Simulated assay, not measured.
Amino acid sequence: MSLKSIIAAASGESADAELLSVVAELAARFGAHVRVAPAFNDPAGNLVFYGAALGQGTPDMLARVNASMHQTLEKLQSLARDVAAQHQLAPSALVVETRALQPRDAVASAAVLADLVAFNGAAARSPALADLFAETLIGMRAPCFIANGGAYAFGATAIAWDGSAQAGRAVRTALPLLQSAARVVVLQNADDGGLDPDAAALDPLNDYLSRQSVMNVTTRVVRGANVAASLLGGAREEQCELLVAGAYGRPRLYELALGGTTRSLVHAENAPHLLLVH
């Protein structure tokens, strides 16, 4: 697994600064090419739709909205240039894509061959991009990096291990990050009622990580009926910058009934960066 092609889904908000800073760190470390995809909705399109539905023409308003959209894109392009310069990247390594007529379709199409699709945490939780994030993670099954903050120094990294296929895919996807981490902590919740003891055995995972040259690995058992809270608590106590986890490893009805570990991780306050794979 390599990290050479990264999509950054830009929200058009101030949170894009944190997102681009993190993906620039990844690009600098792994020689990746980052495509910044403007993923925000087109308010002009909404005005046309609702104006037509109401039988109202709003040419002046459309002009103002279009001007605002162009201004947002120019700010994003300027931000990308500044971030690339700060991280000593060639301008071609961090490129803002031309905004597509249907930005969400463009992100979905680009995700097919992306090693990673990155969202800012606040944006992924927002009504504007929550559906796109969910579709990218679950529908496209693209690995998703949630940037919670603007710094990433490849420090301690946690793995939430339950032995599921999703957790295995997350570990394989995260290998470049795990190999670059200062240390790796494998977290497992002993009170997780859905845990299969045989599948979740730690020795096979530790053997796999060793063969992949992932060094300085320790394991830690956490407790608590709230799986997400216990994992986040363990990651915080270990001062982990990143938590790697499988996403929606159980049937969706089970997740909906119990609240969902994945949903809780994404919506948690003061969470580390997340790498989620379905």
Rank of each mutant, 00 (worst) to 15 (best):
V222F: 00
D162Q: 12
G51S: 07
L178I: 01
A201P: 00
I146Y: 08
L178A: 07
G233A: 10
D82C: 06
R81Y: 04
V244P: 02
A114N: 04
G193F: 07
N148T: 08
A151R: 15
G168L: 03
R29E: 10
G259L: 05
A245M: 09
I6R: 01
L274W: 09
I146C: 08
I138K: 05
Q212W: 01
N66M: 10
P91K: 00
A15G: 02
P43H: 09
A110F: 02
R169A: 09
L116D: 02
L265V: 14
A167F: 12
A37E: 15
P143M: 06
D82G: 08
A85R: 12
T72C: 13
N206V: 09
A190K: 00
F49V: 13
A52N: 15
V36L: 07
G224C: 01
V48W: 13
R263T: 11
A90H: 11
A90C: 03
N206D: 12
N226L: 07
A235N: 03
R183N: 13
A142Y: 02
D203S: 06
R172H: 12
A190M: 11
L113Q: 03
A118P: 08
A85T: 09
V217M: 15
N120S: 14
N66A: 11
L89K: 07
D162P: 15
E255K: 13
K4F: 02
A37I: 09
V36D: 13
R64C: 00
R104W: 12
R223I: 01
A63T: 12
T219K: 10
V95R: 02
L187D: 12
T262Q: 14
R172C: 11
V277W: 07
D131T: 13
Q71I: 05
A235P: 04
R99F: 08
